[in-house]
Design a protein around this nucleic acid. Structure first.
Length: 608
RNA sequence: GGUGCAUUGGUGUAGCCAGGCAGCAUGCCGGAUUGUCGAUCCGCCGGCACGGGUUCGAUUCCCGUAUGCACCGCCA
C-alpha cells in the first residue's frame, strides 16, 4: 500500500524473518528494544508484538543524521536487506536469530521519553506494581504481559468457537439495570431523566439470561462483564468477566457435560493437555468432610478424618466438651510428621484459631509410644482406634480440632492447605479439575437471623426436597454445581426454578416479602407464569481461569487495565470528582467531607 | 471496617534490629569502541513518602497520615 503521510510501511513483522528471506529487501516498523553501540556499527533490537529482529546500522549509512538520536522505545521504520548472520553469530534465544536486517534506510516515526522502567524482556520481573499500572501502556509492551493478554484472547476465542459449534448464541444484556436485594453491593448509576432514581450495574446477567430462556433462545452465552462494589483481592476486581451460559430443557448433567467438553477443548488448545472426561464429582458433604473446603485442592492427599468415634469416652475435657456439645473431632494425619517442630505446630494452631477453633491437638506417633498433650489419656485400645481412624502409622503426626462440625472442618481445611504449601506437597505442574455437587440450598445467617441462598435465590431445590421448603429449609439440597480448578472456585451454576409457586416459596424462606419480591423481581415472577421452560446454566470466572492457565499469582496479571486494592486506577486517576453542574443535573449533593481525592493521591500521580 | 508487611536517586535494592559521611545495580547524560545480542570500558548527575515526637544528633526508635500489597470481614 502506498504511504500517504511520508513514512514507509512494513512489509514484514519483527517476528517474520528467517533464513529463507535472505537477500530480500524488506521494511520493518517497530520499537527500539535495545541499542548496542560499537562506534562505527550499531545494533538495534527492533520489537513489535510478533517478535524481535536485529537491525544493523552503519555509521556511514544514508541515515546517519538520525543515528545520534536513537534511544530505547523510539518508533522506527527500517528498510534494508535480510542477511544470514555470520557463522557463530546466530542468537538461538530469538526466533529470527539466524538472520539480521542490514539497514539501508531508517526513519524515526516517533521519539520516546526515557521510560520509567525497562521494557526489555529480561529486565527485572518484579517491578513495583503501582508504577506498572500508572504506565500500563508501557507495561503492556513487555513480552510477559503481552503473552498473558494474548493468552486471554486465545482462551476466549477457544470458548467462543466451542460454544458456537454447540449452537449457542452470543446475546447481549444491559449494563444499566435494576438494583436487586441479596448478593453483593451494587454499583449505582444515578438517572438524570428520573431524578432520585438509580440504575445498578449488573452483578451478573443472571435474570436476563433466564428471561432469554423464557423467550425461547434456548442456548445463550456471553462473555459478560460483571460489577460488584466489594473489597478487592488477588483474585477479585470491581469489574470482572464471566463466561455466562444458560440452556433450556436441560438437567444438571447436560450443563456439566457441556462444561466438561468446553474445559477439555481449552486445555487441549491452550496447554496441549488431555483432560479425562467426565471430570470427577464430589458431593458438597464429601468435599467438606474430606477437605474442609467446598473448593478442594486435590493435587495432594492429606485428607481429613472423623475421629469422633475413636476418641469418644476418653477422659479429656476438650474432647468431651466438643462431643457433648454436638460437635465432632476431626483430624488429619501428616505422614512422617513427627519431625515437625513445636514451633511449626504452634503456627498451625494460630491458623486454626483464626478460623474460630479453640485450639489444635496433636499426637506424635513415636516408636516408643504416642507423644502429645493428651497422650497420657490414651489407653492402648483408644490409640489403636485412633490410628485406624486416621490411617496413621508410626512416625506420623495426627493434628486434631474438636469443635462444632463446621469450625472443625473449615479450620482443618485451612491447615491442610497451609501444610500442603509449606511442605511442598503440591505438584504445581498438575491441573486438577472436579465438580462439587449437592450443595445446600440455603444457609442460616446467624447475624441477620434468617436463611440466605447459598448460590442465588433462583436456584432450584432438588425435586424431592421441595416439600421441605416450608418445613426444614436447612436440609434441602440444591440442583447446584461448582467447578473447581486447583482449589479455586472456577465457576458455579444451577438448574433454575422455572415454576412461579416454587420461586415464591423460596422467596418466603429467604424472607423476601411479597411486596419486595413483586417490586424487585416482579418481572421474573411474571415471566415464569407465562410458560417458562426448565432451564439452567453456569458462569465461569474468566479472569481466574486465565490466571490459573497462565500460572499467574493474581488476576491483575491477566486483566489489561486492572484496579488497585483500593479500587483506583493509577493511570487514569479514577475514581475522580465531577463538576458541580454534573451533580446538579442529577439532583445530587455531596455530604460535607465527601469529595475529591486529597492531594498526593492517585489523582495527583496522573497530572505530572 | 480490621490485621500484618512495605515505602531509600528515574527504576530495582543494601543500610534500620544495635541512631553518627547513605552503598550497589540498572537507567539517564558525556566519552571510547567493527560482531554485539541483558554488549563492553571510562566518567558524570541523581535519593531516605509526608507530618509530628524522643534525642546533642533520626533513613534508622515512637506516634499519626498517605499509598501499595497480602489476609480477615465482605464477595448470593
Amino acid at each position: 500500500m502506498e504511504s500517504t503521510s511520508g513514512w514507509i510501511q512494513r512489509t514484514h513483522t519483527c517476528g517474520d524473518l528467517r533464513k529463507t528471506h535472505a537477500g530480500q529487501k524488506v521494511v520493518l516498523n517497530g520499537w527500539v528494544e535495545s541499542l548496542r553501540d560499537h562506534g562505527s556499527l550499531r545494533f538495534i533490537d527492533l520489537r513489535d508484538r510478533y517478535g524481535i529482529t536485529q537491525v544493523i546500522l552503519d555509521v556511514n549509512g544514508p541515515y546517519q543524521q538520525v543515528l545520534p538520536d536513537l534511544r530505547p522505545e523510539y518508533v522506527l521504520s527500517v528498510q534494508g536487506k535480510v542477511r544470514i548472520r555470520p557463522d557463530g553469530m546466530a542468537n538461538p534465544r530469538i526466533e529470527t536469530g539466524e538472520v539480521e536486517l542490514v539497514a539501508e534506510g531508517c526513519q524515526i516515526l516517533n521519539p520516546s521519553r526515557t521510560p520509567p522502567f525497562e521494557i526489555a524482556e529480561l529486565a527485572a520481573a518484579d517491578q513495583n506494581e503501582e508504577i506498572r499500572l500508572k504506565y500500563r501502556y508501557l507495561d503492556l509492551r513487555r513480552r510477559t504481559v503481552q503473552k498473558n493478554i494474548q493468552l486471554r484472547y486465545r482462551v476466549t476465542r477457544a470458548i467462543r468457537n466451542f460454544l458456537e459449534s454447540e449452537g449457542f448464541l452470543d446475546l447481549e444484556t444491559p449494563f444499566l439495570t435494576r438494583s436487586t436485594p441479596e448478593g453483593a453491593r451494587d454499583f449505582l448509576v444515578p438517572s438524570r431523566l428520573q431524578p432520585g432514581n438509580f440504575y445498578a450495574l449488573p452483578q451478573s446477567p443472571q435474570l436476563y439470561k433466564q428471561i432469554y430462556m423464557i423467550a425461547g433462545f434456548d442456548r445463550y452465552y456471553q462473555i459478560a462483564r460483571c460489577f460488584r462494589d466489594e473489597d478487592l483481592r488477588a483474585d477479585r476486581q470491581l469489574e470482572f468477566t464471566q463466561v455466562d451460559i444458560e440452556m433450556a430443557f436441560v438437567k444438571e448433567n447436560d450443563v456439566i457435560s457441556l462444561v466438561d467438553r468446553l474445559l477439555a477443548r481449552v486445555f487441549k488448545e491452550i496447554l496441549g493437555k488431555e483432560l479425562r472426561l467426565p471430570l470427577p464429582r464430589l458431593s458438597y458433604d464429601e468435599a467438606m468432610s474430606e477437605y474442609g473446603k467446598d473448593a478442594p485442592d486435590v493435587r495432594f492427599d492429606l485428607k481429613l478424618f472423623d475421629l469422633t468415634e475413636a476418641v469418644k469416652g476418653l477422659d479429656y475435657q476438650v474432647l468431651k466438651k466438643a462431643i457433648a456439645g454436638g460437635g465432632s473431632v476431626r483430624g488429619l494425619c501428616l505422614s512422617g510428621g513427627k519431625t515437625l517442630s513445636r514451633k511449626e505446630i504452634d503456627q498451625g494452631e494460630e491458623l486454626v484459631k483464626r478460623a474460630g477453633a479453640k485450639g489444635l491437638l496433636w499426637l506424635k506417633l513415636e516408636s516408643d509410644g504416642p507423644k502429645g498433650p493428651f497422650a497420657k489419656f490414651l489407653d492402648p485400645e483408644a490409640l489403636h482406634r485412633l490410628r485406624a481412624a486416621a490411617q496413621a502409622s508410626t512416625g506420623d503426626l495426627i493434628l486434631m480440632v474438636a469443635d462444632q462440625d463446621r469450625i472443625a472442618l473449615t479450620s482443618l481445611g485451612l491447615l491442610r492447605l497451609d501444610l500442603g504449601r509449606r511442605l511442598n506437597l503440591i505438584d504445581p505442574s498438575r491441573s486438577e479439575l472436579l465438580w462439587v455437587v449437592d450443595f445446600p440450598l440455603v444457609e442460616w445467617n446467624e447475624e441477620e437471623k434468617r436463611w440466605a441462598a447459598c448460590h442465588h435465590p433462583f436456584t432450584s431445590p432438588k425435586e424431592e426436597h421441595e416439600e421441605l421448603l416450608s418445613k426444614d429449609p436447612g436440609r434441602i439440597r440444591a440442583r447446584a454445581y461448582d467447578i473447581v480448578y486447583n482449589g479455586f472456585e472456577l465457576g458455579g451454576g444451577s438448574i433454575r426454578i422455572h415454576r412461579q409457586d416454587v420461586q415464591q416459596a423460596l422467596f418466603d424462606v429467604l424472607q423476601i416479602t411479597k411486596e419486595e419480591a413483586q417490586q424487585k423481581f416482579g418481572f421474573l415472577l411474571d415471566a415464569l407464569s407465562y410458560g417458562a421452560p426448565p432451564h439452567g446454566g453456569i458462569a465461569l470466572g474468566l479472569d481466574r481461569f486465565v490466571m490459573l492457565l497462565a500460572g499467574a499469582e493474581t488476576i491483575r496479571e491477566v486483566i489489561p487495565f486492572p484496579k488497585t486494592a483500593s479500587g483506583t486506577c493509577p493511570m487514569t486517576g479514577c475514581p475522580g470528582p465531577v463538576s458541580e453542574l454534573q451533580l446538579r443535573e442529577l439532583r445530587l449533593r455531596l455530604e460535607p467531607g465527601a469529595g475529591p481525592a486529597p492531594p498526593g493521591g492517585a489523582g495527583e500521580l496522573v497530572s505530572k
